[in-house]
Simulated assay, not measured.
Amino acid sequence: MTKIRDLNPIGNIARPIGGTDLGIPFVMPNGRVGYVFGDTFGGTTQIAGGPDWRSPVIVTSPTRDMTQPIVIDGACRGGDQLWPYVHANGEFSTVLPCDVVVIGSRLYLWVMITQGLGNEKWCEIWYSDDSGETWHNGTSYATPGVGASSRWSTSAFRGQRVMMTWDRGRDGWVYAISTGGLARNKNALLWRVREADILDPAKWEGWCWLNNQWQWKANPADHEPGDILPAGARLGEIGLRWIQGHWVFSGFDAGAYEAFVRTGYGPISGVNWGTAPKLRPVRGSGLFPVGYDVQANLYGCYVHPDSKFEKPDGTKGQFVMIVSQWNGQNGQGPYRAMQYRFTAPNKLGTLLADPAPNDGGSGPISEWDPILAEILGTS
């Protein structure tokens, strides 16, 4: 495990960023990589608290080669907060992002509305159709009749549907793993929903243990989803990504105070996450870390979607993980997101290319493309 660089401070955008955290990575429709930050502050130093408080924030990068340091050269809305609201407004203090999934040209962002750390009031799904420049909330802009709700309960399902991570299964479904909030004291649940129904809570299906078998059940109010990790698991921030035919589940294990990367292959319903191969690429510590794989005040821990199990020549590939550090005290640092790199886990099956990558297509359309398509009979 090697630290490559700090992602912040960031001075080359309209609203510079001093202190920030999370940096949840995802591939945007235009082929750039977005990084979603949580509570973000202005200035030039890695300090929590201070001027220009905003959250969520998305910065962007052209870097797709995970053997290279990540270069940040842009931001949605110039680095502004994604939609307007007042922090510490009496009802809630801030809006914290959990993950983005991209379906076609639309970005969906799951967020927690919090009143202080560990006190999540409700969750919401917001979406953008212009690569993060403008955002809408589910209720007002959902397709009429789908029953979408702007507020998702944080007490339902034993309080384990608060922090959410998701990705497309490349089969018409979005698969998601959820856990509790920033108390970091809950196990994980597995979900799925058809891509077209993502805003409708009634269409979500939970992975439930019923009649001595695991099965999907829609709107499982009377048959709650079952824990997918061994009893006693206590998770913090989590990430789920489809990478080369593998499901990669990463995050912060608060019980063991370390990052984890679990891998499964094939349909996600066939993965036993309790016994799935597991790496521990970086461990937490107190103020004085000891060892190359130790990071003081660790949290976050998101595997980058451009990580690869193998290089083109068939040798071991590289994984990148975005890791956060902060001691929890306002006015103090370092408060930052960092790029770490480590040797990829072992592949579990044939490596697959993404059948529908979010790369914005094959490039600009030439006037000759329709003519060529007609000649080839593919128009």
Rank of each mutant, 00 (worst) to 15 (best):
G132N: 00
G78F: 07
F342E: 13
S93V: 06
I228V: 14
N89A: 13
R262M: 11
D359G: 15
N211K: 08
R77Q: 07
T343I: 10
P69C: 13
P267I: 02
G23P: 04
G18H: 04
I58T: 12
M1C: 13
L348Q: 08
V248I: 04
A254H: 13
K217M: 05
M164I: 14
V86N: 14
T114E: 14
W122R: 08
F319R: 13
L117E: 03
R234D: 09
G11S: 15
G255E: 14
L210P: 00
P97C: 09
F37E: 05
P370R: 06
G236I: 02
N219Q: 03
A14D: 08
N187C: 12
A14C: 01
P29N: 12
A276W: 06
F26E: 11
F37A: 06
T139E: 13
P267L: 04
W152D: 00
A233K: 06
R64W: 00
S93F: 03
G180H: 02
G349K: 04
M28F: 01
V303E: 09
D171Q: 09
W173V: 00
R280P: 00
W83T: 07
L352T: 00
T134I: 01
T63E: 05
S131E: 12
D65C: 10
D313F: 01
A156D: 15
P334H: 10
V290C: 03
F260V: 09
N272A: 10
F92V: 14
Q318K: 06
A188K: 01
D129T: 08
G34T: 09
L109I: 06
G300L: 07
I103Q: 06
R283C: 15
A353F: 01
L182Y: 01
D171T: 13
I47E: 08
D222T: 09
Q339G: 04
T114C: 15
E237Q: 04
C301V: 11
L229A: 11
Y302K: 10
I177L: 10
A188I: 04
A218P: 01
W166M: 15
G251D: 02
K186E: 10
G49R: 07
E374H: 13
L279A: 09
T378C: 10
G43M: 13
Y127W: 12
L22S: 10
T134S: 11
Y127A: 06
W166S: 15
Q295L: 14
W216D: 02
R106W: 01
N219V: 00
W135R: 10
G266R: 08
A218T: 04
D6P: 01
N89F: 05
S366V: 04
P345N: 03
W204R: 03
E91C: 11
T154E: 03
A183C: 12
N185C: 11
R170W: 02
Q215M: 00
I365L: 13
V100C: 11
I13Y: 14
A344C: 04
R192Y: 00
Y292F: 13
V162T: 12
S150E: 11
P225F: 03
N297K: 13
Q215G: 00
A233T: 08
A148M: 06
S269D: 11
N185E: 05
Q325H: 10
P56L: 07
T67A: 11
P289I: 07
W83Q: 04
I375P: 05
H87N: 12
P69F: 14
Y257E: 15
